[in-house]
Design a protein around this nucleic acid. Structure first.
Length: 648
RNA sequence: GCCCACGUAGCUCAGUAGGUAGAGCGCGUCCUUGGUAAGGACGAGGUCAGCAGUUCAAUUCUGCUCGUGGGCUCCA
């Protein structure tokens, strides 16, 4: 009995396959809905839908529908095959390499004489559609390695031969659609007919196997979804992300810019951006002092000998700037820890003094590869909200708790979601077993005590100690590492840091490097995208602007401005000889939270008419009321800005 | 660094099949005193990223340099 679709009613008999559903004209979503009641949670056995597959334990068992994460991955991987088939039909010389599903789509790398360009997309997409409409089955066969090598060698697919030769397995699986056969673990869709809502997005160069020693291949990125509507939604989200690009908003809102010709990768902060930055900096300083940190500051330049002692000269020189004068070579600091250690070591310290917490908004320079630079998100000169905690081993856990609490509080304040990972001992490392156990244990216990979820990256720690990394997610769904909390066994050793214990002997302290926002530049870049440039009132460089209807209202506007300035509100008056609509438009495009209009009515009432940047009107208010409204708003960091902001 | 694309007015972009360039916004001056997203007129602004080469002639073609954008991790 076949699947029957009549209007909204669907009957799905036992043993129906995904292919049957397609034949009956069911979409992924409707099919899922139809089977959910029968098999629970949308799971469905597709094994019988795969031609040449007899089912059973050794076969591909697909228990998915297309719009689940598992289903999308299969759809995307299968679409990559369709694209490769299309490319080989159109460009017979193209050699195929690899083509996996990725987070929001798929890619395939080709070796071609002339790299692909977006101009090729139309033809490739048309050929893909043609292949998809044929609903060609994906057929699977298993060959021994030697047989498989022969198959690809005959076709001249040298990359595939290399891949197979590097494999450990005795047998490998191949999947074929039409004439196109690819080395592939699978699983795949029953047939190419499912590939409908797809789009090619971009071309890029990519090294064979990711190594810059290898040949540069031509990569095509694309995406595919179960439904046309899902694809549209995704493309709209990309468009929204482009509107929020911090580089665009940075210029439009006069926050910052770059002068690439004279200082690539280094920021010029304009008054409004500098104000935002200063507000954050002031807040950070206060918050650190509250939590028992002390502020210090070291020099930008330190003699080469010191970098040799720390190991940076041997390991990090490529990324450092150097300058020479009168025969002395100085390194521009790429991190702040050395100066902090010198401050610590300037006198003999008792165990009673510990922990010592030195904080610095430290300006560092790192020579990143030119191709890696990206607006505020990857720069060569940046400011870390850095601190070094030097403590006794028995204090480590409490100190980590303090740092994690700060991480939690700050990201909550800024309305960010974040992910935490603990990286443990790598194979190549220094320090004793005891050191590693205690430090790693302290990190994990601290996270548990604060009650924050985390994942563990086995063996991903630095050679000098375990660490906690925190990543926040931006509006493009990109993850950016912000916080890092690193235990360090090596620098206290190299710099012979000591404290005098209760026993009168000298002991070696532990050092924790930590930054919370990471780099202020990067953080502000992420923040601008996060809130689409509509800063919450407490951060907005201009919190309110007074607009006059005619010059008859200028005098009162001036008085109102002075009164609100004295109340601590960042306010401007727009007294220009322009129409009200013009001034409103401009203030709103600048995303100023409060627009205060003064005309005859307001003059008579002795107040202002309040309008919000989302277009809502609050109405006539006295100056005292306006003051209270704005100051109260500042107490609720993200109520009127943040992700709630919408472009008009 | 490497691959591809790109670099024209402050911004967003058009244009020149080789004969030194335009629009809109912004900016300036003047007119307009106007009630919640653009009132009008006139005007100023460009060594067409930089350096070389080909040519009678280069912003346009070629090469190099600088810079920008998308990528270069996610195992067939």
């Amino acid at each position: 009995m076949d699947i029957m679709v009549e209007g909204n009613s669907v009957s799905v008999p036992d043993g129906s396959s995904f292919a049957d559903a397609l034949k009956a004209g069911l979409s992924g979503k409707r099919f899922k809905a139809a089977v959910a009641a029968r098999l629970g949670d949308g799971l469905f056995d597709l094994s019988s839908a795969i031609p040449g597959n007899s089912g059973g334990a050794s076969a591909d068992i697909l228990a998915v529908t297309l719009d689940t994460p598992e289903g999308l991955e299969i759809l995307r991987h299968s679409t990559a095959h369709v694209m490769a088939a299309a490319v080989q039909n159109l460009f017979p010389d193209a050699k195929v390499t690899i083509g996996p599903a990725i987070e929001n789509g798929f890619y395939y790398d080709f070796d071609v004489k002339k790299p692909f360009s977006v101009d090729d997309f139309e033809a490739i997409e048309a050929e893909m559609s043609r292949i998809a409409k044929l609903a060609l089955p994906y057929t699977r066969r298993v060959l021994s390695r030697d047989e498989a090598v022969k198959v690809f060698a005959v076709k001249g697919e040298t990359y595939k031969v290399e891949l197979i030769e590097d494999l450990d397995a005795a047998d490998v699986s191949l999947y074929q659609i039409g004439d196109f056969e690819d080395l592939c673990r699978g699983p795949h869709l029953p047939n190419t007919g499912f590939v409908r809502a797809f789009k090619l997005l971009s071309v890029a160069g990519a090294y064979w196997r990711g190594s810059e020693k290898n040949k540069m291949l031509s990569r095509i990125y694309g995406t595919v979804f179960a439904e046309e509507a899902d694809l549209k939604k995704y493309l709209n989200r990309l468009e929204e992300a482009r509107k929020r690009d911090h580089r665009k908003l940075g210029r439009e809102l006069e926050l910052f810019d770059f002068h690439e010709d004279v200082a690539p990768g280094m920021v010029f902060w304009h008054p409004k951006g500098m104000l935002v930055r200063t507000i954050i900096e002031d807040f950070l300083r206060k918050e650190h002092l509250k939590r028992g940190y002390e502020l210090v500051q070291g020099p930008q330049l330190l003699r080469r000998e010191l970098w040799e002692k720390s190991g940076h000269y041997a390991n990090y020189r490529e990324n450092m700037y150097f300058t020479e004068i009168e025969g002395d070579v100085y390194g521009v600091k790429p991190m702040n820890c050395l100066a902090h250690m010198l401050v610590y070591g300037s006198k003999l310290r008792s165990y009673r003094e510990l922990p010592v917490r030195f904080a610095e908004l430290g300006v560092v320079h790192r020579h990143e590869m030119s191709g890696a630079l990206h607006g505020l998100l990857r720069v060569r000169q940046f400011t870390q909200d850095d601190a070094h905690i030097i403590c006794r081993p028995d204090q480590l856990e409490d100190e980590i708790i303090g740092v994690i609490t700060l991480v939690r509080d700050l990201f909550t304040l800024f309305d960010f979601s974040y992910k935490i990972a603990v990286s443990t001992r790598p194979e190549k490392c220094i320090g004793t077993d005891e050191d590693w156990e205690r430090a790693t244990g302290a990190l994990i216990k601290a996270l548990d005590k604060v009650g924050i979820q985390y994942t563990i990256n086995e063996g991903d720690g630095a050679f000098y100690g375990p660490k906690i990394d925190v990543k926040v997610t931006d509006s493009l769904e990109r993850e950016w590492q912000c916080s890092t909390i690193q235990c360090d066994f090596t620098l206290p050793e190299r710099f012979e840091l000591v404290y005098v214990g209760a026993d009168g002997d000298r002991h070696r302290p532990v050092m924790v490097h930590r930054a919370i926002l990471g780099s202020l530049e990067r953080f502000i870049g992420i923040l601008v995208e996060h809130c689409a440039g509509a800063f919450p009132a407490w951060l907005a460089p201009v919190q309110a602007r007074l607009l006059t209807v005619t010059e008859a209202h200028d005098e009162f506007a001036q008085k109102a401005k002075d009164a609100l300035l004295r109340a601590g509100i960042r306010i401007e008056a727009d007294l220009r000889n322009e129409k009200l609509g013009y001034k409103v438009r401009q203030a709103q495009m600048e995303k100023i939270p409060y627009i205060l209009v003064i005309g005859d009515k307001e003059l008579e009432a002795g107040g202002v008419n309040v309008r919000l940047r989302n277009g809502d009107t609050v109405g006539l208010k006295t100056l005292d009321e306006v003051k209270d409204i704005i100051l109260a708003d500042c107490e609720q960091p993200f109520k009127n800005g943040g992700m709630n902001y919408r472009f008009s």
